[in-house]
Write a protein that binds this DNA or RNA. Structure first.
Length: 758
DNA sequence: GCGATCAGCT
DNA sequence: CACAGCTGATCGC
């Protein structure tokens, strides 16, 4: 399906008319907090070099595509080069927008210092785009640490580590700005909900199954209490809190009943639900054949588990159909196979409130009893099953995600319901349950779903998320009891931890800046003779950043801003990026590869060989000078980071994980080492940039919030992983019991015990 | 030819 | 390993 989709031609032209910017108020939002700059960067006239044909992926076979691309780029360069400055185009009318964007305080991303592109005869962004004016790495730099790229403060008197500390402070401060905004939004739960309820326009989206708008019926229904709250099929634990005898705060008790393997009790549920769906494993003859789930990640592979009802159920839980035998022949074995094979059952962790609401469950056809399908973010393993033929019910998601559903999957608009951020919305036909979207800090448009029943029972589904301390402090979460948490447990193992995102962004920006600066040795030598001597240029550096379809844009934005470059994206991906409606990103995009020093490319191209090939068309020929003659690849991956050797990752205590300095995962520019095979011209860096929560993130999130039951959503296929995850959840619970909710040390010290840190 | 699904491969 | 894809093959329509 991905293949089919990607083959579709990307003739889409940038939309000139853009929808209004989405509401603000998120923490660590992917979206800039400024009004849309309302500029749709035109595909530059000289961009034939980047035509879809030349940049499309290798659909017509291996090297041809690269050859073709190279040829076209070379030709374009030759055709064009006389025209002068490759960086000029598109700049002029962007100045003001850029300036305002750089000055915005809502963006926590790195530098705001456009600087010389350092391309020899070339020049630069117009001076007034620079705010504060600062040449971090250009030939005229005094030193690498001349100024803070956040606040402009002169840092040259400081040691490098002091300078780094300062810059990190600045970056962190940018984060707290968002916290303030969140506070501003909301004083207490009641007010927010009330505000939402009183705001007719925002309050309810009511759509019937055909997608027709019908009359809002909020108040009547919501105020009718128990009767209105009956779920269609059965009564269950969700009704417990209707009973006044059930103190919602008494959650320890309800946890007590939860077993160690947190989900084992789901087994019975699953079997009751539809016993016929529990299918035998690994039998080629059996209908519905499939292999056992992939062994839990991070654990030694074991022989395939015995087929049990539970494993059979969990087999369907893998987001991806990896390692699965073919399912084709189920419906009609005599034929070559038919897609009409009975749908897999939807795994329990995607079903909320007895399944009246599901999250990221689109590959199970129609789910009986589901009145609202939620999509947490636009990654294929979560939207799998969605297509133009979707007709099983309304889809709720963030605006960016909604845009992408229409643009990329052609899902019919009548099924798509975009929800605002940080606002309670009553979900139609779901017994008055409300949902509030919170920024998941995963990829653009990614959301946490916070559901609230009429009886004030809160259920949080994280989708995929990267937890942060500001997320813990979010007024929608902090200080509230969350009865159930569906948790992204991708990295729920002490082995996995990642540096703070901002540290990584800062390190990358710093690295690239320093690579653009003259070699210190040479510069110093020259200066020894003649201090004013311009440092010799080191050539034009191209920065190639690997990315999936959505995600990691922050890396590109951060680096681009640090070096004053635009960001080139293949023309085929351009509409996708526009659909994110991120004004900052949009303002930096260009489809002209010569117009930007920072390029985004599919992760598959990020290898030494791939970099070489990518660079080639930009190299000089007898007929033209080089656009670029060096290339640096950035490969964002969560897997390469090794924590400090002193860290106890075998059996750490929760306290240790939460607070010990050993569990800081520092990351600085000096930690960035090129991979083997890198040289002066072609260098590849793997950076520990993760958009999932690491182990410490998860621990802090779950110890910092008042959480009842936790349900893992990843890695639940293997018994051992399940057990280990459950053990951690148990430890978190004990820690909360014993020490109370975790708070950041600095905050505790500043405000003293007992004070809320909101 | 197109959409959907899957095996295999990063 | 696998973050979250991509690519080609196959099948139904």
């Amino acid at each position: 399906m991905a293949g089919a989709r990607s083959k579709s031609k990307s003739t889409a032209t940038p939309k000139s008319k853009k929808p209004p910017p989405k509401p603000n108020g998120n923490i660590l939002s992917y979206f800039s907090k400024v009004p849309a700059a309302n500029q749709s960067p035109k595909p530059s006239s000289g961009a034939n070099a980047a035509s879809p044909q030349s940049l499309k992926r290798k659909s017509d076979g291996g090297l041809d595509e690269n050859e073709e691309r190279r040829a076209k780029l070379t030709k374009a360069l030759e055709d064009e080069f006389g025209t002068g400055d490759i960086n000029q185009e598109e700049e002029d009318d962007d100045d003001d927008d850029l300036r305002s964007l750089f000055e915005d305080d809502g963006e926590d991303l790195s530098s705001s210092a456009p600087i010389s592109l350092n391309t020899g005869e070339t020049p630069t962004l117009p001076a007034k785009a620079t705010s504060p004016p600062l040449d971090l790495a250009g030939p005229r730099s005094e030193a690498k640490t001349a100024d803070c790229f956040m606040c402009g403060k002169v840092l040259s008197g400081l040691s490098e580590s002091e300078a780094n500390a300062h810059v990190n402070d600045c970056l962190d401060r940018a984060g707290t700005e968002m916290q303030k905004r969140a506070e501003h939004d909301e004083i207490c739960e009641g007010q927010v909900i009330e505000a939402a309820l009183n705001n007719k326009e925002k309050e309810v989206i009511v759509i019937d199954d055909e997608g027709h708008d019908i009359k809002p019926k909020m108040d009547t229904e919501e105020s009718t209490g128990d009767a209105a709250f009956k779920l269609p099929h059965e009564e269950g634990e969700y009704f417990d809190d209707l009973d006044p005898a059930n103190d919602p705060s008494d959650y320890e008790d309800e946890e007590e009943e939860e077993d160690l393997p947190n989900q084992a009790n789901q087994l019975e549920e699953a079997e009751e639900e539809d016993p016929s769906r529990v299918e035998p494993l690994n039998s080629d003859d059996a209908p519905g054949t499939r292999v056992a789930p992939i062994a839990p990640m991070f654990l030694p592979r074991k022989p395939k588990p015995k087929p049990t009802a539970f494993t059979a159920l969990m087999d369907h839980t893998a987001e991806k159909p990896k390692g699965r035998r073919k399912r084709r022949n189920q419906a009609n074995p005599s034929e070559g196979g038919t897609p009409q094979a009975p749908p897999r059952p939807c795994p329990f962790y995607k079903k909320l409130f007895q399944g009246i609401i599901t999250v990221d469950a689109f590959r199970y056809s129609k789910i009986e009893g589901c009145n609202a399908y939620f999509l947490s973010h636009f990654h294929s393993d979560h939207y799998m099953g969605l297509s133009s033929s979707w007709c099983h019910g309304p889809i709720y998601c963030s605006r960016a995600t909604a845009n992408l559903l229409k643009l990329r999957l052609r899902v019919k608009a009548q099924y798509i319901h975009e929800l605002p951020w940080d606002t309670d919305i009553t979900i139609p036909n779901c017994n008055g349950i409300k949902v509030r979207l919170l920024d998941a800090n995963h990829c653009p448009g990614s959301a946490l779903f916070l559901f609230t029943t009429l009886a004030n029972r809160r259920v949080l589904h994280t989708g995929d998320f990267r937890a942060t301390t500001s997320m813990i402090k979010h007024p929608s979460l902090f200080g509230r009891h969350i009865h159930e948490l569906y948790l992204d447990t991708t990295y729920l193992s002490p082995k996995y931890s990642f540096p703070h995102t901002l540290d990584v962004l800062s390190a990358c920006s710093g690295l690239i800046s320093s690579l653009m600066a003259p070699k210190p040795g040479i510069a110093n030598m020259l200066r020894a003779f003649r201090p004013s001597a311009p440092a010799p240029p080191r050539g034009h550096l191209l920065v190639l950043i690997g990315t999936y379809s959505i995600g990691k844009e922050r890396l590109a934005v951060s680096i681009a801003r640090a070096i004053g470059s635009k960001i080139h994206v293949p023309e085929s991906k351009y509409p996708t990026y526009l659909a994110l409606e991120d004004p900052l990103l949009t303002s930096l995009l260009t489809t002209n590869p010569h117009n930007a020093q920072v390029h985004l490319t599919p992760l598959g191209n990020i290898s030494i060989q791939g970099l070489k090939e990518y660079l080639e068309p930009f190299l000089p020929t007898p007929r033209k000078p080089a656009s670029f003659n060096r290339i640096v690849g950035i490969k964002p991956t969560g897997w390469t980071y090794t924590p400090p050797a002193s860290r106890n990752t075998v059996n750490p205590t929760v306290r240790e994980v939460l607070n010990s300095e050993d569990w800081e995962s520092p990351y600085k520019r000096e930690d960035m080492k090129p991979v083997r095979g890198s040289n002066d011209t072609v260098a590849l860096y793997e950076v520990p940039y993760s958009e999932h929560s690491g182990f410490r993130d998860l621990t802090r999130f779950c110890c910092g919030l008042d959480i009842g039951k936790i349900i893992a959503t990843v890695g639940v296929g293997g018994e051992k992983t399940r057990r280990e995850m459950a053990a951690w959840m148990e430890k978190w619970k004990e820690d909360r019991k014993r020490f109370g909710l975790w708070r950041e040390k600095a905050v505790r010290e500043k405000e003293g015990p007992g004070t809320s840190f909101i």
